[in-house]
Design a binder for these strands. Sequence first.
DNA 1: AGCCAGGACTGAG
DNA 2: CTCAGTCATGGC
Length: 214
Amino acid sequence: MRRAPLLRQYFETLLAALGPSGWWPADSPLEVAIGAILTQNTAWSNVERAIAALKDAAVLSPEALLALPEETLASLIRPAGYFRVKARRLRHFLSFLTAHGGTMENLRHVPQLRQRLLEVPGIGPETADSILLYALDVPRFVVDTYTRRIFHRHGLVPEDIGYDELQAFFEDALSPDVPLFQEFHALIVRTGKSWCRPTPRCTRCPLAPLLPPS
DNA sequence: AGCCAGGACTGAG
DNA sequence: CTCAGTCATGGC
């Protein structure tokens, strides 16, 4: 089954309906990585407050963040929720970053970077791929709850499909294309937020015309 | 008042 | 290995 044309139809439909997303919403690659950790199972509006607090405290650099006591860092990111675990996860990532040159740019030269990121405590597949795609322009397709929910409701994947399998569903069909991957995931999340909630309200979803007959 | 959010990890069986 | 429990704030 050739799913490339189908997936491109989903992409074009969403892009036409919603317009370009301009993702990831961040001012720097480091901010992308921080946001990727902070947004784990958390509304982005809460992440914005946390990042704003880091900016107000003028600690939005690897050195400054690592210099903070973990407890202080936790209090700064408090609005993002799970602030104690996330403070630890940020420190784990920042230690990793420091060990590999101290800048996001230097991460590009790390061999097997995805596997190395997955070894960092608190960085799972979605967080790793978000960093790769949006901070480092590596063409990995980011999948999340919305991706699974939307494409399951359209009958294209099983509800319990695993991360790697769902990612392969997209990467096997689409040739590696950073701008496409970036925009596609962004559109999926925006669609999920508005229409593909746990209790569906699909009437005005732009993807409704593509739904299979139920 | 609940339910939910752009996950990841842990312990139990 | 699967799976319920844990982490936590803020918006609706």
